[in-house]
Design a protein around this nucleic acid. Structure first.
Lengths: 208, 208
DNA sequence: GACTGTGAAGCCATTCACAGCT
DNA sequence: AGCTGTGAATGGCTTCACAGTC
């Protein structure tokens, strides 16, 4: 749809703007300026305006932005105007925590099922979400039209889990396993690497 | 120490290179070229060389890099030549998962304690790590020389927990709460935002 | 007067291409 | 011949500054 290339940093900020706008909406605030948004998210006014300008003209000169309208636009831009089906692979500590995580539901993500190979976990539920064996993963993803897979298995199993998701024609994957993953370019893929994040902190502490 | 400004992207890649070099070391591989590293981490050879060149000359022309030496250098650059004391605030699902997470210990992070206000959790242990009340947080951080705090509390408590860590003169904070945090500039601070990561994926799926 | 939208400038990171070693 | 180290070129993101609108 959009052909113009959008910086990933802009997309990240849009998500943060949206969360801030939710807050303003809850406080009954009608109008907001780029400067106020900037203050609320620790950014700059010019950045806010530039980010929004990629997608249209949402504001009124001399006035600012309508909070509700703008938030609606941003949610639509982010694809949050309808809900997404998600599965989590790995029912260990991290997988369980992600399954319980309230923030996903609130933002339009339906966590449909968790997959694990531990025979003692299969059949149980995590906060209402059923646990199935990994052998059923591909079939389930196809049948239930799951678009997003979250990988929270130990590093050595991550590639095979990703392969199974790819085979099932998943659209996007969020990977928590600390391992370089090979994946065809047409699938959206992101890593969340907990150790790397800590090591950036130690680097900064040591090099100053 | 290092005055030259290093791109954050470079630091992230160094952490990934180091993990890949561990793998090579375990496989008994002695020498590696920038091209092989690039292949192993889905990067480019020029990028690998440029990243390393910020910190010195670690390779031999015509030959490549000594795996063990290079890994040692990178770990030192990242500040991993000695261990770090870490506390986790929040003993909920996410805090528990992070406490159990094996990857931290392996890379030199000692998780000393977890803090929570739930009276039913205080006094218990998570995989051997004791849970203390949040009221003891500042005192503990000072006394035990904790350098890194991980914040895994609900969003509405995140700022006050951060304030307590700042007051205790913590050096760095990794925040998992989906909330904009205000923090003095001299403290190293990073967000890991799970929802934002999913929303980047949905943005990419919708806009193609 | 206030605030948005945007071309231009400035800044930063990545890629290129080749000189320099082994 | 092979591979590193690096200045130069390119590409991309952010900031600036102001014209346009209410």
């Amino acid at each position: 749809m959009k052909t113009l290339k959008i910086p990933e940093a802009t997309v990240i900020r849009l998500s943060v703007y949206s969360r801030y706008l939710n807050q303003l909406e809850n406080n009954g605030i009608i109008t907001v300026s780029s400067g106020e948004i900037a203050e609320g998210v620790n950014g700059s006014p010019a950045q806010v305006r530039k980010d929004l300008a990629y997608f249209g003209e949402f504001g009124t000169r001399g006035v600012g932005y309508n909070v509700k309208d703008l938030n609606h636009h941003i949610r639509k831009i982010l694809g949050l105007d309808n809900r997404w089906n998600v599965v989590i692979v790995g029912a260990g500590n991290l997988g369980s925590a992600l399954t319980h995580y309230k923030g996903f539901q609130e933002r339009g993500f339906n966590i449909l099922a968790v997959f694990d190979n531990d025979i003692n976990k299969v059949g149980l539920r995590i906060g209402g979400v059923p646990i199935y064996p990994v052998s059923h993963l591909s079939e389930y993803v196809k049948k239930e039209k799951v678009q997003i897979g979250i990988v929270a298995v130990p590093a050595q199993y991550a590639q095979e889990v990703v392969d199974a998701l790819v085979e099932a024609d998943i659209k996007a994957i969020l990977n928590f396993a600390p391992r370089v993953i090979n994946i065809p370019g047409h699938i959206d893929f992101r890593n969340v690497d907990l150790v790397v994040n800590l090591e950036i902190l130690t680097f900064n502490m040591v090099n100053k």
